Amino acid sequence: MSAGTSEFFCLICALLSTCTALTADLGQNVTMPCQFFGNKHNNITLLKWSRPDQGPDSYILLYEDGRFHPDKQLPSYKDRVYLEDMETRDFSLILMNVTMEDRGPYECDFVEEGWNQLSRTTSTTFLEVVEPGNKDGNTGDGGNKTRVIVGSILGVILLLAVLGSVGFLIYRRLMKKNPNLPVPSDEAAAGQML
């Protein structure tokens, strides 16, 4: 995965607030969040942690039919992943001894069954791995990572400004073409507010 892809993913995470971005030092243990807040009496029929960037069946951890399936686990995660606390329905993934290859997106997906209905929950975490001591984002690339993030944010702001301006110009053009559209005067608008 290229450096630009990770910044783009982190920007989307920040804008949509549907996922978490974490940074871990090489060799460190990291916990990726995934919690169940539903009815604790509901049965969890499926729980899987996967790497969506590595294909559809790229399981880090798979629990299905009441048991774990280590035979379906990606080999590089064998004996390095654990759940925080299955009993309390905290499905956060603990990844031990983080490597550079662990960098990328992770998805926690679980299905609960209760009262003749199924509900599915998915959360996404993007893991950035850095050399120890580089938590400030200094990746030794001369600041390119920071420039990409700032440039991406400014690009989104500029895009929103352009879209707002275009919308305003379209509105003004419509008003010029049809001057008979009712526009409340200041006095009428003030009277409506009371």
Rank of each mutant, 00 (worst) to 15 (best):
L127N: 08
L159H: 04
V156Y: 10
G38C: 09
L127P: 07
L159N: 06
Y63H: 12
S123N: 11
V183L: 14
L160D: 03
V98F: 00
E64R: 12
I157W: 02
V81T: 15
P179T: 10
L62E: 04
Q35L: 13
G191Q: 14
L83Q: 04
D141T: 11
D102V: 04
V156C: 05
L61I: 04
L11R: 09
R89D: 01
G191E: 14
K48V: 07
F37M: 10
Q117M: 12
F168C: 07
S50F: 07
L160E: 06
G27T: 08
N180P: 00
E107L: 09
L47W: 01
L118G: 02
G167H: 05
S165I: 10
F36Q: 02
W115N: 15
N97F: 01
L62N: 03
S17L: 05
A161P: 00
Q28V: 00
D102I: 04
D25T: 02
E131A: 13
I12L: 15
S58P: 04
N42R: 08
P179E: 07
P132A: 08
R80V: 08
E187I: 13
I153M: 05
T124M: 15
L163V: 13
G151Q: 06
T5L: 13
A14S: 14
A188D: 14
V156I: 14
R172V: 14
V183D: 03
G151A: 07
A24C: 06
S123P: 00
R120V: 11
I149A: 14
T121D: 11
N180K: 14
G142I: 04
D79F: 02
L11S: 10
W49C: 11
G140H: 07
V162W: 01
